[in-house]
Amino acid sequence: MNIGKILRERNIIVVTLVCCVIFFLISPRFLSVDNMSAISRQIVPIGLIALGQFFVIVSGNIDLSMGMASVFFAVLLGVFFGLTGGVGIGLLAVVVASLTMGGLIGVLVAKLKLPAFIVTLSALFMAQGLSGLVIPRGQQIFLMGGFFQFAGSQKIFGIYLSFLFLIGLCAAAYVVYNHTRIGAAIIAIGNSEENAKLAGINVDRVKIGIFMFSGLCSGFAGIMLSTRMGFVQPGLDGNGLLLDAIAAIIIGGTLIQGGRGTIGGALWGIAFIGIVNNALNLLNVEDVWHQVFKGVVILAALGVNWLLWQSKQSEAH
């Protein structure tokens, strides 16, 4: 493998490591164990949304609702906690609600052939509305006690439990994506729905499954969000989470036209976003610049992916 090829195929790893070195040189605290540990906890909700979004994007769709939906699910958990004082029913409600929502989106996209971005855009607004309606206006619910403490700050061998959960889910997704027929079917649908159909793949069912998984990931992200924050309120920045997650996916080399992408790349993308978010705070970059930076990063990554894809196409011919 020559250097050019490494740069082309593993560019995200190179960029992430270079960023790490630069941030370390500016602020040595960056590479401290405490800070790395903090990053690993911060990226969990973004990582979960990115994982769900990964499958959606590989299949050639998008789920714009995931950020706001996770805020709604966090609020839902909080409301049930407030009502019952426990988390059991709340967790169950979140899982059921997130699977239902994903399933409904999937049916609308797969069976009625509605464009995913419109369906999920309206779902985004409904989730935002619902998150403000299930909780009295202007209120926050504080989440205290066993589960939130445990899921939010428990460590095993010095690693946050929530981060291990993310890694575990990614590992499971990796196996499904690379070693099962479902993974192959998702890639086939992303490449060409018609061909996938001709190959005997039940396209509708796979699509509904993908959206159910992305819904479930929103639910998990909501749970993790609530445990990390210690309180929930409807005004949490769901769209910011969504943008971070999509940025992570694109930076990870996933082709937005669908049909190509790796879980490993997505993980590096998530790591990159986590590191950059952390560094922007650590280096006292003003908040107003964060969003500019993200917009530029997404556009740049889109451009770079396009160039790499273009050069690959011409190599193939």
């Binding site: 309206s122 985004l124 607004f125 409904m126 989730a127 935002q128 509305g129 998150s131 403000g132 309606l133």
Partner: peptide
Amino acid sequence: YLQSLIKGM
């Protein structure tokens, strides 16, 4: 928030 919900619907 009800407005958001209605808009989405």
